[in-house]
Nucleic acid binder design. Sequence first.
RNA 1: GCGCUCGUAGCUCAAUUGGAUAGAGCAUCCGCCUUCUAAGCGGACGGUUGUGGGUUCGAUUCCCGCCGAGCGCACCA
Length: 661
Amino acid sequence: MSIESLLRERFSRAIGLAFGSEFAGDPMVKAGDPKFADYQCNAAMVLSRQLGRPPREVATEILRHVELADVCDPPQVAGPGFINVRISAGWLARRLAELLADSAAKARGGVARVAQSATVVVDYAGPNIAKEMHVGHLRSSILGDAIARSLAFVGHRVVRQNHVGDFGTQFGMLIRHARDLKLDTGEMPQISDLDSYYKQASARDKSDPQFAIEARQAVVALQSGDPEALRLWHWIREESNRHCREIFAQLGITLSEADQRGESFYAGRLSALVQKLSEALPFGGDGPYEGISEVFDPQRKARLDTGTLDSSCAAEVQEAMLEPEAVERVEEASEPQIVTKAFVAESHGAVCVFLPGFVDKDKKPLPLIIRKSDGAYLYATTDLAALYFRIIEEKTTPEQTAPLDQNWHADRIIYTTDARQAQHFAMVFDTIRAAHWDINPVTQLPVLLQHAPFGSILGEDGKPFKTRSGESVKLRDLLHEAVQRAEAVVEKKNPDLPVAARRLVARAVGIGAVKYADLRQDRITDYQFVWDRLLALDGNTGPYLQYAFARICSIFRKAGSLPATNAAIMLDTPQERDLARRILQFSDVVQAVLQDLKPHYLCTYLYELCGSFSAFYEHCPVLRAASAELRNSRLALCDLTAAVLKVGLHELLGMELLEEM
RNA sequence: GCGCUCGUAGCUCAAUUGGAUAGAGCAUCCGCCUUCUAAGCGGACGGUUGUGGGUUCGAUUCCCGCCGAGCGCACCA
């Protein structure tokens, strides 16, 4: 059990004994400022209000009942009613000794598995086909992977999904453009070629209206199984997938072939999805709503009073024009309808879901379009189909169950996409809930649908990170540069390292620096991509953490062996005690990361752990310790620190560790 | 216009979700290598948390009003 949950339990029991169990809900135990205490219980201030007694008196009363003699020195009441707990060195030492003796627990950094394993889908990366991956994919990939790794580590069934954009509108442009290029599809293309085809097609789409129309038609052709379109599609997709795999491998992203399930996978399910949704939701609302017609479902036509709003509007506008206060009258006349309950309707020829709380610029109901007026489907449709697939659909073939070999029936679904899509996901989730498709068919419990949004990557000038020519930075180039810059640093700092080893170190340091820079910051904020800051050797950076690990490895190389698993732990210096406390906080931090889907908590923790280790390293000689017992104890501290770093940095954040650098 | 996110040291960021005297790194300055990797450690300097109110024992955090930034708002993803 972690320190925090132990204290929480003890204080909760004490509060129950002192004032009755109805007050024992949240004992408010937190890690405190080290100046005052390791942990503090702040329940007294809250209870004082409920009980009508002075907070310090309440605190004293709690202390009278709390049993902590085995864990800490007698707790103190301070300030307005804080209860300060300083964990005793003896207790810390015992816990560390237990961890050291249990090799399985040690290998997990002391993090327990969850009691109840859930099926969690993590939807991340999602690059578009035919385009080279660029910085825009970096955060989604890195963040999503860290979250997926962490969930899997604590024992959840994690289904990673790379929702590749391989069947949408952009593909129509490519097909239409390809017709003019007369490409040789017998030969494998290069991703850079595809990328330039894409750019050309996109440019034509913008400038040539006829091209744009034909491109939209090509989407419909593709989505309805036109063989020529499909052949081209396969040709492009194969190379795109190869390119993705290459980038993921370089970045250490755990997405595999089995996790690849793009838009095209859902293509055959879209028309049925629209049908099912229009049955699950009421049709047409209690309107009338401007622009909504009833052609989609003649059966329910009678429920709608279409057109009245349009015509009455027109009449009122005309009338109003004759009057002096024309402007006000017009605004009045177009007073928007408010959607009070989700419904499906056809509007301007498109099938739409209207939801409460979503309006456009003119305060008119904002639709979630699930079928365009030309009959094509778009990403909202695919996202809904994917949710249905992940939560409800019974899976029979291996193609459907992969990467699990069983039904999914997800309990939780997480999307890591940028913050600009927040409204889109809010609408998609609301639609799923309105249709009651968010209920797990096995457990009958609501599925936790989460969008973990993140900010943009900015350049040094604070504007979106672009190349000098204004294009988005290609991931391949960026990673290449990271490794090159790292190699220059390694060469300078450790000139004696053989060239082959230097290459290896440069790769790990360069890629690690890029990943860590992304992960260390609260995902919701934009961050500046500055090479010198990223590859800095001190401060909260990848290299600094990797260095701490390398130092530990160096000690063990010289020591020749690991500490005995029954070594006694001695914590007589402030540095040893501080390091011990930090090591034992690891599992609480992992829990917080999973709670908020914020890996930067873990980064901050690991940085502080390394800080504590460095201070220990300076002040407490390991190999030259005064006695064999002390040497063993300190070796054990090194070993446990290394174990936490290995789990935290490598297994959860997906960074390479180096034994030497 | 409406909505979302944000505003913290000169710079880049934290702050365990309402807790104590708001913490790190960079930059600047001062110390520490005959001892396990100095890619390190110790210390100093640096703040009206954009702003004005409110809520309460207590606010960077919650509420309201301004100021400023970014993003989104019908057939793109």
